[in-house]
């Protein structure tokens, strides 16, 4: 997911103070927690980590698709792709704002991203090699993200919930635009169809990895679910994603690159192969194909933009001083 392997810092129910118990009771009743209200430090820190990672994923996620804006094959596709990548910047902005209500500044979060202290989703460390990847990313990556984001609209933290509502509303076109590219390619020339199949082959397992490793034994996951900042287990979401995506691939006439894939009547879902988790952990550690380039691009944008941000601040200060003097 856009937030993977978030470390959760909670207290076991039997060790909770009365204040913590009352807080948990509010969440259990489905109440929203708002910025200025009391919250356990663990809840606050876990949320900062999760929302921050989600925000970082949005802005780093601009890069693999941004790659193709200047190479989009028609004016219309160019405009659509640009609008989509722009949305990702907007979504990053909404999420950073939500994190800021927890007492951390956006610039601090940027610094943590740039130093490697905070991560972003593993998926954005994979390269986009052909135009079909714009289809595959929209269809599979946004499709996987939506699985997580839709339930997160009901998360317990008010600003996060509202950011997710806005993001889900705007993102509804993203997956469809990806699928629309895949449809055009799958029904296009043989070369286009091959390109589409190749994109599916490369993005299938990285997309499955987005949900994170199986978390049935994870204590972090249990705590986050109690706090309603994680709404489903990774395995539930992965299963749902596979169940919805396989028929979409069939419609395209493309093959999911998994020979073990089979419908399981009993569980009313597909049996499918796990991704290579050792690859996932390597990517998380920084050894994915594009980790270095992605982070460098962000750091460069930030460093080279310093004079711009400072110039505007300086002017605003001068103008404010001039207004004061005039009054």
């Amino acid at each position: 997911m856009y937030a993977q392997m978030i470390k959760s810092e909670g207290t076991k129910r039997e060790d909770m103070s009365p204040q913590e118990l009352a807080f948990q009771a509010r969440i259990d009743r489905g109440e929203k927690i708002e910025p200025k209200e009391w919250m356990p430090e663990g809840y606050r820190k876990t949320l900062i980590r999760q929302i921050g990672q989600h925000a970082h994923s949005e802005i780093v996620g601009q890069l693999p698709e941004g790659n193709w804006i200047t190479r989009a094959p028609t004016l219309e596709r160019k405009a659509i792709l640009l609008a989509k990548v722009q949305d990702e910047a907007g979504h990053g902005l909404y999420l950073y704002s939500a994190a800021e209500t927890l007492g951390v500044s956006r610039d601090e979060l940027f610094e943590k991203l740039h130093s490697g202290a905070m991560k972003y989703s593993s998926i954005f460390n994979y390269p986009t090699l052909t135009w079909a990847d714009m289809g595959a990313v929209g269809w599979l990556v946004d499709g996987a993200a939506i699985m997580n984001q839709v339930p997160l609209q009901r998360t317990s933290y008010g600003p996060y919930s509202r950011a997710m509502i806005r993001i889900c509303k705007e993102e509804s076109f993203h997956q469809r635009q990806g699928y629309s590219i895949m449809m055009t390619m799958a029904k296009g020339t043989p070369a286009q169809k091959d390109m589409a199949q190749d994109a599916l082959n490369r993005f299938w397992y990285p997309a499955l990895m987005m949900f994170g490793p199986s978390d049935k034994d994870s204590v972090h996951s249990e705590q986050s679910m109690a706090w309603k900042i994680k709404m489903n287990t990774n395995d539930e979401l992965r299963q749902k994603f596979v169940n919805e995506t396989v028929p979409q691939a069939e419609y395209l006439g493309l093959s999911v690159p998994d020979e073990t894939l089979a419908w399981n009547e009993e569980k009313q879902g597909y049996d499918f192969a796990e991704p290579d988790w050792s690859e996932f952990f390597e990517v998380i550690k920084g050894n994915g194909p594009c980790n270095r380039e992605r982070l460098e691009a962000r750091v460069t944008a930030w460093d080279e933009g310093a004079w711009f941000r400072e110039g505007l601040s300086a002017h605003a200060e001068k103008a404010a001083a001039a207004r004061m003097a005039a009054e």
């Binding site: 609008a83 076109f173 469809r176 699928y179 028929p247 419609y251």
Partner: peptide
């Protein structure tokens, strides 16, 4: 004029299901 911002701009065949 930015109608592509809206999901209904992309026609997805019914067979594909909800998206």
């Amino acid at each position: 004029s930015k109608v592509y911002r809206h999901p209904t701009f992309f026609d997805i065949p019914e067979e594909v299901g909800k998206m």
